[in-house]
Write a protein that binds this DNA or RNA. Structure first.
Lengths: 124, 124
DNA sequence: TAAGGTACATACATGAAAGTAAGTACCCAA
DNA sequence: TTGGGTACTTACTTTCATGTATGTACCTTA
């Protein structure tokens, strides 16, 4: 196995901002890397969607977790909630510009993980 | 608040690989986004380090979690462990080339989070 | 000889995240 | 009038990640 010998770059500022135990960065990271956070974000990267579409698409999620995850993502300003006061109710969820910025960085990482995950878990 | 109206790109393959409940991708993502996983990885991005250096640098980590996190990262092939059979023991940890690939994608994301985290958590 | 350093392992406890199940309120189609 | 759809909320339970505490084995310095 190849081994890196050197550092990538000076990361001092990053270290200061991420290492403290209860920092904002940690909070945000926990939100997006929560069990369903990533899934919702990449689902919404495919375009605005309704509650029931997200629920069907995100296989295995419970209604509670869908509501909860959408709420924190909305609270963080990643997701926009558009509720139309009609009956039956119609609610559309979409990414905000901040959400788009985030997924733009998230997608390459997830693609890499997706491509390498099998090799990684079976140790090759 | 600005709202995106359209999808970013076709992400179909990603959806298939990440959405299943107990998929390899999920496992790997959980490993790297675990409470201490990211920290250890960016710490090692600054160059090879010894156990005690990592322990001091990663403020607040317990020895149990350091050992555990290093083991899973080593098991995933992100981290290389070099133990010299001397007394007192000397063990150097470093990123593998796979680990380097990963942090190369991780760093931009973490920098973005670090820059925006404060605005995000206090809702502005 | 007592304290502190190296690098861990292991048993037990806790707490937060996630799951389960049920309820709400309204409408429509069979 | 029974079942299904819209979009949720709430109470309770379980599971798993993480924390705490202590032990190991050897060496060096005060």
């Amino acid at each position: 196995m190849k081994v890196s010998t050197q550092s990538v770059q000076p990361l001092a500022p990053l270290m200061g901002g991420i290492f403290p135990a209860a920092c904002p960065s940690r909070t945000v990271l926990d939100h997006v890397s929560s069990k369903w956070g990533v899934l919702i974000l990449v689902a919404l990267a495919q375009g605005p969607q309704r509650w029931s579409e997200l629920r069907r698409r995100t296989e295995g999620i419970s209604e509670k977790m869908l509501a909860q995850t959408l709420k924190t993502l909305e609270g963080d300003g990643f997701v926009h909630r558009d509720a139309q006061p009609i009956i039956p109710p119609r609610v559309d969820y979409s990414l905000t510009s901040r959400g788009l910025d985030l997924v733009a960085l998230l997608i390459p990482l997830l693609e890499w993980i997706n491509e390498n995950a099998e090799d990684i878990v079976n140790g090759s």
